[in-house]
Each structure stands twice: as structure tokens, then as C-alpha cells.
């Protein structure tokens, strides 16, 4: 049992941190905004190159009022969602099949080692040739990158299921299909979830890569358009929107994941 001294030392250290905990996101944004404003007010950079927060805000309001903000958001999110759904479903299914097969494991690793480093943006030309500049090439690009990473993580999760679970299952008389569904898959679930989180981040990445060239809507397209008019205030507004979108999606996936993989709490 820890003595009272240890208990108090521990709680005193964390008292301030704990009181501030719920406010930390606000504080951190306030700090960044303050520094950003000060840099702009000091006049060392021109507003047209590095616009202050209030100009970015005005640009965001303008985008909102013209309705572009909502339509871009809808276009981007539906591309990301469809591409992600296709890629993640195929990735999990493939990983479940390959992860427990020794032959696949041997053949797969060299292949993945070469495929994974190819950045999504490098695939844009191929995607456009194959699927045109419509939605098809976006779905392809997003689902491909998501597929690869979800497959990889699922495969490894299935490959490294602790032997002791399999042994326990077998000497309790579970047939193979029950072992697969109720032991192997849950044991690999934390890895699969890790792959899905990475997949969400990659979906956003390849979404923007796809929209920057050959699109007529979406957040990435709007960024590209802002470049043509040299509207840095818009760019900043759109970049912040992307950041918030990514953080929000990750939060949602994390919340859902924690409920599914409830036993794996740090």
C-alpha cells in the first residue's frame, strides 16, 4: 500500500493539470490565435501573404454565406466517406483472409513494403487516366490508400494473435470457425481499429490530393481556386476547416472504437 506521502505527492503534481484538463483545447487555441494575431499586428509580414485570424474568419463567413462552404463540405465528406467505406471494407476482409495464412504472409510483406510508400498524390495521374476526372478517380484514390493501410494493419493484427488464446480456445473444444469469429478476430481488433484510424487520416490526405487537380467542388478544389485569386485568407480558412474535419473524424472513430474494443484501455 502506498503511504499517504506518496498519495499526496502524486495528487499535488496533477492538481493544476487536472483542473485545467477540460479547458486545454480552448487554452491551446487561444494561445495559437494570440501568437498568430501578434505576428500579424507587428507588421513584419504583409496581410495579403499571411492574413490575420479575423480576415480568415471573414473569408470563412463569406464562403458560408455564398453557400460554397456547405456544398464543398458535402462534396468532400461524401467522397471521403464512400472511398473510406470501400477501402476499409475490402481492407478488413482481405486482412482477415491473409493474416492467418502463412503463405500469404510470406508473399505479402515484400509487396506491401514497395506499395505503401507510394504517396497518394503520385497516383493522381493514373487515377485520372483510368477513371476520368469525375468522382470515380476520387473514390479510387481514397479507397486505394485506405485499403492498403487497413489491410496491412488487419493482416498484422491477425498474424500476431497471441498463441495462448488459440491454445485456450482449442483445448476448450471450439471448432475452427468459432475460434476465428470469437477469438482470433477480437484478439486482432485493437490492430484493426488502429488501421481504421490511420485509414481515416489517409482518406483525408488522398481526398485533398485528388481534389487539388481535376475537381470542380470540394475543399481541395476551393483551395486550388483560392490560389488562382491569391486569396490567402480563404486558404487559411479552408486549411483550418480541413484540420477541424480531420480532428473531428478521428475523435468520432476513436469514440466508437473505444466502445467496441472496450477491454483495451490504456
Amino acid at each position: 500500500m502506498p503511504g499517504p506521502a506518496a498519495v499526496f505527492a502524486g495528487s499535488r503534481d496533477s492538481w493544476v493539470a487536472r483542473a485545467l484538463e477540460p479547458l486545454t483545447p480552448l487554452l491551446s487555441f487561444a494561445m495559437v490565435l494570440a501568437v498568430w494575431s501578434l505576428v500579424c499586428l507587428s507588421g513584419i509580414v504583409s496581410d495579403s501573404v499571411f492574413p490575420p485570424p479575423w480576415q480568415a474568419w471573414e473569408a470563412a463567413v463569406e464562403l458560408y454565406q455564398t453557400g460554397v462552404l456547405a456544398s464543398d463540405f458535402a462534396a468532400s465528406i461524401s467522397r471521403a466517406a464512400i472511398g473510406f467505406a470501400i477501402g476499409a471494407t475490402l481492407g478488413i476482409a482481405t486482412g482477415l483472409l491473409t493474416g492467418r495464412t502463412a503463405l500469404f504472409s510470406l508473399l505479402l510483406n515484400p509487396f506491401l513494403r514497395v506499395m505503401r510508400p507510394i504517396p497518394a498524390i503520385a497516383l493522381v495521374p493514373v487515377a485520372i487516366v483510368w477513371f476520368g476526372i469525375g468522382e470515380g478517380s476520387k473514390y479510387f484514390l481514397i479507397s486505394y490508400t485506405v485499403f492498403l493501410t487497413v489491410w496491412f494493419n488487419t493482416h498484422h493484427g491477425m498474424e500476431y494473435v497471441p498463441d495462448i488464446y488459440i491454445r485456450a480456445s482449442r483445448c476448450l473444444g471450439a471448432p475452427r470457425w468459432r475460434e476465428f469469429c470469437t477469438v482470433t478476430i477480437p484478439a486482432a481488433a485493437p490492430h484493426i481499429l488502429g488501421g481504421i484510424r490511420l485509414g481515416v487520416a489517409l482518406a483525408l490526405l488522398s481526398l485533398v490530393a485528388a481534389e487539388l487537380s481535376g475537381a470542380t467542388s470540394g475543399i481541395g478544389y476551393r483551395l486550388q481556386e483560392a490560389r488562382q485569386y491569391i486569396r490567402t485568407d480563404r486558404m487559411f480558412a479552408l486549411l483550418i476547416e480541413l484540420g477541424l474535419l480531420g480532428a473531428g473524424l478521428d475523435w468520432i472513430v476513436n469514440q466508437i472504437g473505444r466502445r467496441i474494443v472496450h477491454w483495451e484501455q490504456a
Partner: peptide, 11 residues
């Protein structure tokens, strides 16, 4: 079989 590491399914 009873294992030293229990081998319960945590899920």
C-alpha cells in the same frame, strides 16, 4: 489446461 497467464479472453 490452466495457464500461468490465465489466458482468459479479455473481450
Amino acid at each position: 489446461v490452466i495457464f500461468q497467464q490465465y489466458a482468459l479472453f479479455p473481450w
